[in-house]
Design a protein around this nucleic acid. Structure first.
Lengths: 184, 184
DNA sequence: ACAATGCGAGACACGTTTGTCCCATCTGGG
DNA sequence: CCCAGATGGGACAAACGTGTCTCGCATTGT
């Protein structure tokens, strides 16, 4: 076997991640059987790539956090609060449409791993400050509520996509709606 | 035994509905054990009131649909599109905070029972028409998206409440946010 | 004191899901 | 042609959730 030609196993790996994303987005309690079936592989093969269910979910989570950190950086670069929301949400939507999932990916208050919270806190506080300075924040919105609203809308959009809707139509729509909800 | 003095069993019944609401809102796949524990009763007692898990969920669903029909009627009476959203969402929030649950309560496209869909379609089309006439609908919003956004936000708010937040602060906040998201 | 009612706790059978193992099969490179 | 790596399918034990049942206890009205 040549040094670099694991494209076979590699592609299966990615197909699993993609299928798990879709399946768990629609039904967070989906079993390994359903995930394997959606990936078009056998259950045994699924266990060859991810020893346990938790391991698969952890992999999804890592992918998601990578994307979210990138999205946070891109969002902070924006000076307009509305643009900041749109950029951030669109990036997250494209992430959850590919090989990550939001369900199970965001522990509400688990201080255990600072990783997820640190990135999102950076993005949200930057957005809140920016919106407050320009007096464009919707009344009653604070950091915690912005997080809740964003997560709820992204989650709903992700479900639409997992159910067959087009990312290119859903992602901007979710971003626009989130912007309307948070900034005026 | 007197004719009417089942207040004992009756109160247990309501405590179960309330506990099930909260538990299933936080974790839709919560087991009967978790529900009984949150209600502060034994699992056997839970089964004495609801023979199966499905029966419990059906009871929650019926309660929710009652409340939603009332909310739809109240919403339709409003002439201002923003007020229509606020009235509807606030009513739903108070419902899910008491003894109903949104999870499992809204079959996306199950034509089986027209009940849920008929009421919500009435409310949403009335709102859309009203908002379109006054040109206050946010661009890109149609009936399906209004439903998706409303459900997502109510769901998120219900989770906050089930986790301990105060209905009186969450309900108006969800309603305002939904209004901002849908109408300008 | 007595009986009735509702309850908590535990034991149980059953089905489903998880995670492991083994073997037959396919495919591409030597 | 042959072989290694990856796969699919099936058998399997263990864990978990469901639903049923029985027992003993507490409350309440008589």
């Amino acid at each position: 076997m040549p040094t670099v030609l694991r494209s076979d196993a590699q592609r299966t790996h990615e197909r699993i991640l993609h299928a798990a994303t879709a399946e768990l987005t629609v039904d967070p309690s989906a079993g390994m059987d359903a995930i394997a079936q959606r990936a078009g592989i056998g259950r045994a093969t699924l266990y060859r790539h991810f020893a346990t269910r938790d391991e698969l979910i952890a992999a999804l989570r890592e992918l998601f956090l990578d994307r979210m950190e990138a999205a946070a950086d891109a969002s902070i670069a924006e000076t307009d609060p509305r643009a900041a929301v749109v950029v951030f949400i669109e990036a997250i939507m494209r992430a959850v449409a590919e090989t990550c999932t939001l369900n199970e990916a965001t522990p509400p208050e688990d201080a255990a791993d600072g990783r997820g919270h640190e990135a999102i806190n950076r993005a949200i506080t930057a957005f809140i400050d920016c919106a407050r300075e320009t007096n464009r924040l919707q009344p009653g919105v604070d950091a915690a509520w912005a997080f809740t609203v964003g997560k709820a809308l992204v989650d709903a959009g992700a479900r639409e996509i997992a159910l067959g809707a087009d990312v290119e139509v859903i992602a901007p729509r979710v971003a626009e709606t989130a912007a309307n909800a948070l900034v005026r």
